[in-house]
Design a protein around this nucleic acid. Structure first.
Lengths: 200, 200
DNA sequence: TGTTACATGTAACGTTTGTTACATGAAGAC
DNA sequence: GTCTTCATGTAACAAACGTTACATGTAACA
């Protein structure tokens, strides 16, 4: 049985996904949920506490969804980077990522207000993306580039909504890495022993 | 002789570069400039009008700075993409771009409030970056990818401040394109006649 | 049955928001 | 010397903000 607070968190997540963070206000939020600002403060102590709990819940959900994807992809021939992209732009995950990108940007310009909600996910994130590369190619520059391609394309998707073109672009990147590898083959070594195929 | 309003715009630009857009408020802003909210409204009619004029001024400055760079780079051997990157992360341009990225994100989540300030710069922007490619390689996927690499790396720079690593990453991308071209040479044609060297 | 904890409604607090009314200087034009 | 225009100061407006005080209902447990 869910507590009233847990039910509220669920509804709040939905509201935040739709309206974003930057102009969040308690009264309109409460009204949209059919409750009152009084209640939100009662359950979450403050607006700050509310945001903390809701964002936390969102990140947990996202991690679970990602874990499920990773389990399911076992023994699939698709490229890791493409799998990751498909997962990110899936209808059920996309709004979460969109909001986290907004949070990231707000925190850059206003760390005092938003920095506190950023977990050390950024590093986990890039570490995860890095596993799409064979170890021999996992240089800082290549890992940074890989993360940037992902971020940049996701941002472009956010701005234009063009799933088709952005997906073509990430396939283009995978092809680019393949072709470059052909011209200048990576040193094979421990990398050959890793489980992933090392194909972008 | 500058009008009072033009002087104000200059000071406002400086303030916005420092504080960002998302929590802009007239009274703190006026106090930081040694004036009053009354005056700002007097000169700009409304907060909305103020933002419109100031952001417009910023985009003009940025375009002028970019134009100057393009003139100066004539007959330089550096790759176009690297030149563009160096220009973007230069101390005098970086804060402007940072703010425009914030604007872009805010507009995604809240078009009603921020969409009006977005010019059709996005398209100009990507068209400009595209000139770093030889015509034969200027496919939608490649142009999108190129823009995304730039955006993604700039975002990473905003978050981490690591100029060195992000610059290494863009050089890595240039190398990648070069190597891929070696393995699968682009069809030469009209592209060979363009002024740029077509080397990333 | 009385007590305790959770949940909620109604109002208000003090502050900040963008904006406006009203009055007053300073400077140049006739 | 009056008139007009630009610039500014002082106060106030209504609205929205996050938060709190106080009272009340419901349900479970003693």
């Amino acid at each position: 049985m869910k507590t009233r607070k847990e039910i509220l968190v669920d509804e709040l997540v939905g509201y935040l996904l739709e309206h974003g963070l930057s102009d969040l206000s308690l009264r309109p939020l409460a009204e949209a949920l059919g409750t009152s600002a009084r209640l939100l403060i009662y359950h979450f102590k403050s607006k700050e506490g509310l945001l903390a709990e809701v964002l936390d819940s969102m990140q947990t959900r996202l991690r679970m969804s990602l874990g499920g994807m990773i389990e399911r992809r076992a023994g699939q021939s698709e490229r890791p980077l493409k799998l990751f992209w498909d997962w990110a732009i899936a209808r059920e995950n996309y709004p979460y990522l969109k909001l986290l990108y907004e949070l990231q940007i707000l925190a850059v310009q206003n760390p005092a207000a938003y920095g506190q909600y950023l977990q050390r996910n950024a590093s986990n994130w890039s570490a995860l993306i890095a596993t799409a590369l064979p170890e021999a190619e996992r240089t800082p520059a290549m890992v940074t580039l890989l993360g940037a391609v992902f971020d940049g394309l996701f941002l472009e998707l956010m701005s234009t909504g063009d799933r088709k073109r952005t997906t073509q672009a990430i396939l283009q990147f995978i092809r680019l890495v393949d072709d470059a590898r052909e011209a200048r083959p990576a040193i094979r070594g421990k990398a050959a022993k890793t489980s992933n195929t090392g194909r972008g």
